[in-house]
C-alpha cells in the first residue's frame, strides 16, 4: 500500500494563513525576538508537526497559532478572519469555537468528572445542557472512554487523562486540534496509543497540528515544519518511506 506523496496532501480550504509574523518580548531591559518573520499556510485536513529545539520560537508559534497571543507585526488570518488585531474576548471566542487544545500536562480540572471536563467548552459556547451531555458523551466514546465518564482525573491513568483532554478538544468541532507535546508526560506505549488516536482523527478529516521536539512523534505527521532562531528552517511533506507505521 505504497502511497504517492501527492495523494497525501488532498488539501481542503485554507485554515491558517500567517505572513511575515514577528513576535518580540521584553525580558527586563532586553528585547527578545522570538519570531523574526514567519510565513506559513495550513489547509483543512492537514497533519502538521512543528519542531524545533528550545529557544527556536516553537512555543511562541504555538501560542500564536492557538490565538492565545497576538503577533507584534505581520498578518494572521484564521478561516479568513484577521485575528492579529483581535481583543482578548474575541480571541476567547475563536479559541472556543475554532481551536481544540491538547496540553502536555493534560490540564483537566481536578474537581470535575471526565464528562464535566469535556462539557466545559460547550458551556462557554452556550450549548443547552441536554445537547452538551450528548455531545460530550459522543466525544468520550470516540476516544474509547465511554465507561469512564464519571471518573475524576485523579482516578484515571495518564493515557486516559490525555484521552479526556482530546475528547474535550474535539467536542466543539474545532477547525484545528492543537497539541503541545501531547505525549511529553506519557510512557512509550501510552504515547503510541495517543498517537493512534490522532491518526484516526486525522483520517476522519480533522486538521491536526502537533508541537513537539521528539522526532518519533513528529514522524506521525504528514508535514514537518522546523523552526530555528525564530525562522522557518524547513517545511517538508513526508515521503511514504519516511512515514512510520506504529
Amino acid at each position: 500500500m505504497k502511497m504517492e506523496r501527492q495523494i497525501l496532501r488532498p488539501k481542503g480550504n485554507l485554515v491558517i494563513r500567517i505572513e511575515g509574523v514577528t513576535k518580540e518580548y521584553k525580558m527586563g531591559e532586553e528585547i527578545v525576538r522570538a519570531l523574526r518573520g514567519v510565513s506559513l499556510s495550513i489547509h483543512r485536513n492537514e497533519y502538521v508537526a512543528i519542531m524545533g529545539p528550545s529557544g527556536s520560537g516553537k512555543s511562541t508559534m504555538m501560542n500564536l497559532l492557538g490565538c492565545l497571543d497576538t503577533p507584534t507585526s505581520g498578518k494572521y488570518e484564521f478561516n479568513g478572519k484577521d485575528v492579529a488585531t483581535m481583543e482578548d474576548d474575541e480571541l476567547a471566542e475563536i479559541r472556543n469555537k475554532e481551536i481544540g487544545f491538547v496540553f502536555q500536562t493534560f490540564n483537566l480540572l481536578p474537581r470535575s468528572t471526565a464528562l464535566q471536563n469535556v462539557e466545559l467548552p460547550l458551556i462557554y459556547a452556550g450549548v443547552p445542557a441536554d445537547e452538551r451531555r450528548e455531545r460530550a458523551l459522543a466525544a468520550l466514546e470516540s476516544v474509547g472512554l465511554g465507561d469512564r465518564i464519571n471518573h475524576k482525573p485523579n482516578e484515571l491513568s495518564g493515557g486516559q487523562r490525555q484521552r479526556v483532554a482530546i475528547a474535550r478538544a474535539l467536542v466543539n468541532n474545532p477547525s484545528i486540534i492543537l497539541a503541545d507535546e501531547p505525549t511529553g508526560n506519557l510512557d512509550t506505549k501510552t504515547s503510541a496509543d495517543i498517537m493512534d488516536v490522532f491518526e484516526s482523527l486525522y483520517m476522519q478529516g480533522n486538521t491536526i497540528i502537533v508541537v513537539t521536539h521528539e522526532e518519533d512523534i513528529a514522524r506521525h505527521a504528514r508535514r514537518i515544519v522546523r523552526l530555528r532562531d525564530g525562522l522557518i528552517e524547513s517545511d517538508k511533506m513526508m515521503l511514504e518511506e519516511d512515514f512510520v507505521k506504529v
Binding site: 476567547a92 471566542e93 479559541r95 500536562t105 490540564n107 462557554y124 459556547a125 474535550r168
Partner: peptide
C-alpha cells in the same frame, strides 16, 4: 492560575 489559563484556552472570557 493554571486552571484559569486552561479555562481561557477553552474559551472562557474575562467576565466568565
Amino acid at each position: 492560575t493554571r486552571e484559569i489559563g486552561t479555562r481561557k484556552a477553552l474559551g472562557a472570557r474575562r467576565r466568565t
